[in-house]
């Protein structure tokens, strides 16, 4: 009987720990996703927009295509940052309400 009670209390504490860990895991996953996208997207968009759009389709000269793709990557960077700030602000409102 004692064993069963022990097992039950153990499993309950395990379950509550898992429940406590779940939001942290979700927060970690979304933070990792947004951070990786903020770091990788500007670099990708710089080279992709330079090679495909400004050099390939519009065939600008070197300086113009460089400047256009730099502006493009900075724009993408700030859009990603804005989405992250909005997500952090909106997501945390929800968790504080739950508490």
């Amino acid at each position: 009987m004692q064993d069963v009670a022990d097992f039950q209390s153990n499993s309950v504490s395990d379950l509550s720990r898992m429940k406590n860990d779940m939001p942290e895991y979700i927060a970690f996953k979304s933070t990792l996703l947004y951070s990786a996208s903020i770091l990788i997207l500007p670099i990708l968009s710089f080279f992709l927009s330079k090679i495909i759009v400004f050099d390939g389709i519009f065939s600008h000269n070197l300086v113009t295509s460089n400047i256009c793709s730099a502006a493009c990557s900075v724009l993408v960077l700030h859009i990603a940052l804005g989405i992250f700030i909005y997500k952090a602000y909106a997501g945390n409102e929800k968790t504080t309400k739950k508490d």
Binding site: P23, A27, S30, T31, Y34, S35, I38, L39, P42, I43, S73, L77, L81, F84, I85, A88, Y89, G91, N92, T95, T96, D99
Partner: peptide, 18 residues
């Protein structure tokens, strides 16, 4: 629970390097 919110200065510092 505030870690997600407080990462923002670190990301903004990373943008300076970009």
């Amino acid at each position: 629970e505030l870690i997600m919110k407080s990462i923002i200065p670190v990301i903004m510092a990373g943008i300076i390097a970009i």
